[in-house]
Amino acid sequence: MTSVREQVEKTYLKPETQVEAEIKPVEVGDTVRVHTRIKEGDKERIQVFEGIVIRFKKGGISSSLTVRKVSHGVGVERIFPVHAPTVEKIELKAKGVVRRARLYYLRSLHGKAARIKARTQTKREGEASE
């Protein structure tokens, strides 16, 4: 049985198909492109923020992604409420290999050290696709 709270939240969540396709595959360490709608005066445009997911806080409607990138030598982090209507699309660019749930250690690393190893197909996934 779903609780009253879940029923209320359900109407504000993103559609199931979008959750399955865009949100569920995202994991910590992945590189994503987040498309957000931005209002300038009465015009609207899409802004893309690309970076590494350093935190994925799960919790229904209050789920959020923290994405970090280094822009002109300055570290920039943005927190996106995943289910907000302003977050238009989340695009998965690359999977990464990490051993932690929160990648805060990236903040103290620079340059080459701050890279994350890309995940190529693992053995199990290879078998599944065959």
């Binding site: 709270r5 209320v8 939240e9 709608r37 409607i61 409420p81 907000a84 209507p85």
Partner: peptide, 18 residues
């Protein structure tokens, strides 16, 4: 019932009590 959050038309997050 409890608390949660919802989004309004502009995308603002509103804390609400159910």
């Amino acid at each position: 019932v409890g608390m949660t959050q919802i989004f309004d038309a502009e995308g603002h997050c509103i804390p609400v009590t159910i």
